[in-house]
Measured scan of single mutants.
Amino acid sequence: ELKKVVALYDYMPMNANDLQLRKGDEYFILEESNLPWWRARDKNGQEGYIPSNYVTEAE
């Protein structure tokens, strides 16, 4: 089971490997080892790295 998180803030990608975050949207965490960058997937199936301090665990 993948960990689900909710974006606390918008995040615009800095490079091609990053994933855009939209405040309030849910994302699945694929990999937590790259702290403070986590690999995530959005609801459309896009994958990339996000800043872990921009998300919180979903209820």
Score class of each variant (00 low, 15 high):
3 K>M: 13
5 V>F: 09
15 N>K: 12
39 R>N: 07
16 A>H: 11
38 W>E: 07
11 Y>E: 02
38 W>A: 12
34 N>H: 08
33 S>K: 13
16 A>L: 07
27 Y>V: 11
49 Y>Q: 15
23 K>V: 08
24 G>M: 04
4 K>E: 05
13 P>L: 01
25 D>K: 08
31 E>I: 06
5 V>R: 03
32 E>Q: 14
5 V>T: 03
18 D>I: 10
42 D>T: 08
2 L>I: 07
24 G>N: 07
13 P>Q: 03
1 E>Q: 06
59 E>Y: 06
20 Q>H: 08
6 V>W: 08
39 R>Y: 04
48 G>F: 01
28 F>K: 05
49 Y>E: 07
48 G>N: 00
30 L>R: 04
46 Q>G: 10
43 K>I: 15
41 R>D: 00
21 L>N: 01
11 Y>S: 05
9 Y>R: 15
4 K>D: 03
49 Y>N: 14
30 L>D: 02
36 P>F: 02
27 Y>G: 01
5 V>L: 03
49 Y>T: 11
3 K>G: 04
43 K>A: 14
45 G>V: 02
32 E>L: 05
5 V>Q: 03
7 A>D: 00
53 N>W: 05
50 I>N: 00
1 E>S: 04
5 V>C: 04
25 D>P: 00
12 M>L: 14
18 D>F: 10
28 F>P: 02
12 M>V: 11
28 F>D: 11
13 P>K: 06
49 Y>F: 10
29 I>C: 05
33 S>Q: 14
46 Q>R: 12
32 E>V: 14
44 N>I: 15
25 D>I: 04
17 N>V: 08
16 A>C: 09
27 Y>P: 02
47 E>G: 02
41 R>Q: 13
15 N>I: 08
11 Y>C: 04
46 Q>V: 15
17 N>P: 06
52 S>Q: 10
45 G>H: 06
4 K>Y: 03
55 V>R: 00
59 E>R: 09
8 L>W: 03
25 D>W: 13
42 D>N: 07
11 Y>N: 02
13 P>T: 03
15 N>L: 13
2 L>G: 11
14 M>R: 15
39 R>G: 02
17 N>M: 12
32 E>P: 13
3 K>V: 06
7 A>E: 01
26 E>F: 11
51 P>R: 08
29 I>A: 04
52 S>I: 09
8 L>A: 06
59 E>L: 07
17 N>E: 11
55 V>F: 03
56 T>P: 01
44 N>V: 09
11 Y>A: 03
29 I>N: 01
16 A>R: 09
7 A>P: 02
33 S>H: 07
48 G>L: 00
8 L>Y: 03
17 N>W: 06
39 R>V: 08
29 I>F: 01
23 K>A: 11
59 E>Q: 12
56 T>H: 14
13 P>S: 07
30 L>S: 04
9 Y>A: 15
7 A>G: 02
35 L>D: 15
42 D>F: 01
51 P>T: 02
46 Q>S: 08
16 A>Y: 05
25 D>H: 12
56 T>I: 04
32 E>N: 09
7 A>T: 01
1 E>G: 07
46 Q>M: 09
9 Y>E: 13
47 E>Q: 06
51 P>A: 04
37 W>F: 12
59 E>N: 12
46 Q>A: 14
17 N>T: 13
47 E>H: 04
55 V>Q: 00
6 V>Y: 09
57 E>T: 13
38 W>K: 12
56 T>K: 14
1 E>L: 08
50 I>H: 02
49 Y>P: 02
22 R>V: 15
54 Y>P: 00
33 S>W: 08
